[in-house]
Amino acid sequence: MTNSTQPEKACFILNPKSGVKSSVDVPALIHEKLDTTRWTPEIVFTERADHAPELARKAAEAGARLVVAVGGDGTVNEVARGVLGTSAALGILPKGSGNGLARHLGIPLVLPQALELLNQPSFGKIDTCNINGHAFFCTAGIGFDGLISSVFAKSAKRGLSSYIQLIIREFTSFSAKPATVRVNGKELTSDFFVVAFGNASQYGNNAYIAPMANIQDGLLDICLIRHVGVAEAIQLGYGLLTKQIANSSLAEFHTCSTIEVESPEAQHFHADGEYMGEATSFNIQLSPASLEVVAPF
């Protein structure tokens, strides 16, 4: 907050289709719980895919100090993209099925508590990343998790149980593809099940792909998983949910700020869980301390 006695503008961007179903009237809750001596709220709704970045950018350019994503990881990604490079800060009211960035930052998953955090805001800057020009703030990945994001995008069902069912179904027919990973002057060539990039520690739902990741250290955590069978996949799943994947012999970790991946075959990839398509060449870059957010720093 500034020293001004006037409330500052806060724009809330709601995705009415985001995440799990809820009976909560979010606009009413915002009007009830938000401290209007601190913030003057504006509430807008997304009407289509990729509408949120436009709304966020417009709000920031109109002088909003705070632009709040109300939704899941996809909505957070879109709003954050719109806020990048502006003087506005990102706020999050988590209302999705995974809430990866909110969980990593320690933002309460209960909406009234998340609003209280906005009433007494603590501002800090986090690193941001991109994969082939697509911004991500939490995680990105090539291989099996990229495939899952493509299948999940077509699914009408949301939530953790639906996600797990898709993983089990797709695992039986998935084959690891060859790729060369260039990181810290090394070339690592293998058949990779997953090449995952963690700016934050988890995918969402407390599934930790990079449990050591620090979103403010200027480094990206790379997790390499080579071809695995059923027994290994079960071990990896347990590791994800217990933060123990870093201790598994099945996963190899590196840290860097830039990484390149080349594959002779097109591979699926995602950014913050959103399917981005297929490619044979990938460039992943990190920009340190490039996004201001409200979180309990």
Results as ranks from 00 to 15, higher is better:
Glu260Val: 04
Gly141Leu: 09
Pro264Cys: 12
Ala246Phe: 06
Asp127Leu: 07
Glu265Trp: 03
Val194Asn: 13
Ala207Thr: 05
Arg38Asn: 00
Ser22Pro: 07
Ala271Lys: 13
Ile168Pro: 11
Thr180Glu: 10
Phe144Asn: 01
Gly239Ser: 05
Glu187His: 02
Ser161Leu: 07
Phe136Pro: 08
Thr139Lys: 03
Asn3Asp: 11
Asn99Phe: 00
Lys125Leu: 06
Val194Glu: 10
Arg81His: 02
Gln113Thr: 06
Gln235Lys: 15
Ala102Gly: 15
Gln244Glu: 14
Tyr275Lys: 06
Glu78Asp: 11
Gly124His: 12
Glu8Lys: 03
Ile164Thr: 07
Gly218Asn: 03
Ala28Val: 01
Val230Ser: 12
Ala200Pro: 13
Met276Leu: 08
Trp39Asp: 04
Pro41Cys: 08
Pro178Glu: 14
Ile13Tyr: 13
Asp191Phe: 11
Thr37Lys: 02
Asn206Arg: 14
Phe192His: 15
Asp50Ser: 12
Leu291Cys: 01
Ser249Ile: 09
Glu232Phe: 11
Val181Ser: 06
Ser150Gln: 13
Ile222Lys: 03
Tyr203Met: 10
Thr255Ile: 05
Leu55Lys: 12
Pro41Ser: 09
Gly204Gln: 10
Leu111Pro: 00
Lys125Glu: 03
Asn214Tyr: 06
Phe144Val: 02
Ile222Leu: 13
Gly71Tyr: 02
Leu160Asp: 00
Asp272Cys: 08
Lys17Arg: 09
Thr36Ala: 15
Ile234Ala: 14
Lys95Met: 12
Ala200Ser: 15
Leu55Tyr: 10
Phe297Asn: 12
Val230Asn: 10
Gly72Glu: 01
Ala140Tyr: 06
Ser248Phe: 00
Asp191Glu: 14
Gln244Asn: 15
Asp35Gln: 01
Gln202Leu: 08
Asn15His: 11
Ala60Leu: 04
Thr128Glu: 01
Ser122His: 15
Ala88Gly: 05
Val83Arg: 00
Ser22Arg: 13
Lys21Arg: 04
Asp127Val: 11
Thr36Pro: 08
Leu117Val: 10
Ser257Thr: 12
Val24Asn: 07
Gly277Ser: 04
Ile209Asn: 02
His227Asp: 06
Arg48Asn: 12
Gly82Val: 05
Glu232Tyr: 11
Thr75Phe: 00
Val261Ile: 15
Gly82Ser: 05
Ile142Tyr: 08
Leu160Ile: 11
Glu42Gly: 06
Ala56His: 09
Glu260Asn: 14
Thr280Arg: 15
Ser149Val: 04
Ser23Thr: 08
